[in-house]
């Protein structure tokens, strides 16, 4: 029995980062973000340090979670449009972008989302607990 428990624990520890494998972004830290519980069918858009878009969601049709998938720039608008066309109330897009990205890239994503009908953007951050260190511009 203890074997099973240990194995479960190890599986959890390994799988958690592996789920996000293929997509790596160091999320910015902030002191005053709100807690946002993850919803089952929410749509997350990731932008990694290279500016590549990843769509991370559980399909409403199949109910399967496949992990973040790379989406080419050309495909994103149509895909988001299709996803949000069937949603009337929860027009929120969670954005997980790397902190060192130029805002122009984020802005592009925002424009695409805007055209797809997204009304609220949830910019995912990490909670910062200690006082902010002085940063040089």
């Amino acid at each position: 029995m203890i074997d099973v428990m240990l194995v479960l624990l190890i599986i959890f520890m390994i799988v958690t980062p592996a789920i996000t494998a293929g997509f790596q972004a160091s999320v910015p830290r902030a002191r005053n973000p709100e807690a946002r519980e993850e919803g089952e069918f929410e749509i997350r858009l990731g932008i990694d340090i290279d500016g590549k878009f990843y769509l991370d969601m559980t399909s409403r049709v199949t109910g399967q979670y496949t992990g973040p998938k790379y989406i080419g720039d050309a495909d994103l608008p149509a895909l988001l449009q299709q996803l949000y066309a069937s949603r009337s109330s929860d027009r929120i897009l969670y954005l997980k972008a790397d902190q060192d990205l130029n805002f122009a890239r984020v802005q592009e994503a925002v424009e695409i989302a805007r055209k797809a009908g997204v009304r609220v953007l949830g910019t995912i951050t990490e909670q910062e607990r200690q006082p902010r260190a002085p940063e040089g511009g």
Partner: peptide
């Protein structure tokens, strides 16, 4: 582990 994973997320809501 199972409880904190989905609960720990933080975000800013930005209106578009």
């Amino acid at each position: 582990f199972m409880i904190t994973l989905p609960l720990s997320r933080r975000a800013f809501d930005v209106q578009v």
